[in-house]
C-alpha cells in the first residue's frame, strides 16, 4: 500500500530524513519508535504532503501511484489520514462543521452525494460515544481550548468518521489518561481491516499492549535503523535507544 524508498527530506535547509525506506502492506499495523528529533513527525508530514518539507530524493508510492505528485487535500481524499502530534486550534470554526466538510470532501471525490445532516449527526454521536466524548464537543471551535487529551480524542473522532485507508497517528497516545488510551486503542482497532493500514508513531510500549503491531521500526537520525516484530518494542523498553544506535553504528 505504502512504499517509501530511500527518502531524503529537508526543512529550512536541514536534511532530516536521510535515506529512509519503509513498506507497509494492506491490513498491517506498523509502529515507529525512536528518540526525540529523529524525524518521526517529519516522516508523517511528508506523507501528508506538508509543503514546508522539501523532498530532495527518493520516492513514495501509495497504492501504486506517485504520492509526491498529489496535493495534501488530494492525498486526504484518497484515504490518507494524519493524526497530528500537535493538533492546531481553529477558533470560531465549528468542530462539527469541519468534520462534515471533511466527510463531504471525501464523498464528493468518490462521486457520492453529500451526507444527510441527520445521518451525519447520528454517526458522529455514535463515534463520540464510543470514544467517551461529550457531544458538546461538536459545537465547540475546532480544538479551541481543548485539553491535550481532548485534542487527541478529537483526532481519533475525525479518523473514525473518515475511515481512511492509511492512517498515520503521530503520538496520538501521548498525554492520554488510561481511559482515553483504551478508547483511542479501541478506535484504532475498530478500523483495522484487511484493506487498511495503520502507522503508529509512539514512544511507549503501553499503546502496543492494546494495539498489537505487525512490525516495529526504530528511526534514528532520519533512517530506519532496526525493524522487527512486536518483541522489538519490548526489547527497546528494556535497553533504551543507545542500544539500537550502537548496534546500527557497529
Amino acid at each position: 500500500m505504502l512504499d517509501i524508498k530511500d527518502l531524503h527530506a529537508a526543512i529550512g535547509g536541514n536534511e532530516i530524513l536521510r535515506g529512509l525506506s519503509l513498506a507497509v502492506g494492506a491490513g498491517e499495523v506498523h509502529a515507529i519508535m525512536g528518540p526525540n528529533g529523529s524525524g518521526k513527525s517529519t516522516l508523517a508530514q511528508v506523507i501528508a504532503g506538508h509543503e514546508d518539507y522539501e523532498v530532495t530524493s527518493g520516492s513514495v508510492q501509495y497504492e501504486g501511484r506517485d504520492l509526491l505528485e498529489l496535493a495534501p487535500e488530494e492525498r486526504a481524499r484518497e484515504g490518507i489520514f494524519l493524526g497530528f502530534q500537535y493538533p492546531v486550534e481553529i477558533p470560531g470554526v465549528n468542530n462539527a462543521y469541519l468534520l462534515k466538510a471533511a466527510v463531504n470532501a471525501k464523498r464528493q471525490h468518490e462521486g457520492k452525494d453529500e451526507i444527510d445532516a441527520f445521518e451525519f449527526l447520528k454517526l458522529a454521536r455514535e463515534k463520540m460515544a464510543a470514544l467517551g466524548m461529550d457531544p458538546k464537543f461538536l459545537n465547540r471551535g475546532v480544538n479551541e481550548g481543548f485539553s491535550g487529551g481532548e485534542k487527541k480524542r478529537n483526532e481519533i473522532l475525525q479518523m473514525a468518521m473518515l475511515e481512511p485507508k492509511l492512517a498515520v497517528l503521530d503520538e496520538t497516545d501521548s498525554g492520554l489518561d488510561i481511559d482515553a488510551l483504551k478508547a483511542v486503542a479501541e478506535g484504532v482497532n475498530a478500523l483495522r481491516s484487511p484493506e487498511r493500514a495503520i502507522v503508529l508513531v509512539t514512544h511507549y510500549q503501553r499503546l502496543l499492549d492494546y494495539i498489537e503491531p505487525d512490525r516495529v521500526h526504530v528511526l534514528s537520525e532520519g533512517r530506519i535503523v532496526r525493524s522487527g516484530d512486536k518483541s522489538l518494542a519490548l526489547e527497546l523498553e528494556e535497553k533504551g535507544y543507545e542500544w539500537v544506535r550502537e548496534a546500527a553504528n557497529a
Binding site: 481524499r77 481553529i90 470554526v93 465549528n94 466538510a101
Partner: peptide, 30 residues
C-alpha cells in the same frame, strides 16, 4: 489580531478540504 496560519490551512487540507474552502471556513467562523 490573528492571521490565518499555514498550520491551520494544512490541517484543513489534510482533512480533504481545499485551501480556498478552508479560508472561507475560517473567515466565516471569524
Amino acid at each position: 489580531t490573528s492571521k490565518i496560519s499555514a498550520d491551520q490551512l494544512f490541517y484543513c487540507r489534510q482533512r480533504g478540504i481545499a485551501e480556498e474552502d478552508a479560508v472561507n471556513m475560517i473567515v466565516n467562523g471569524f
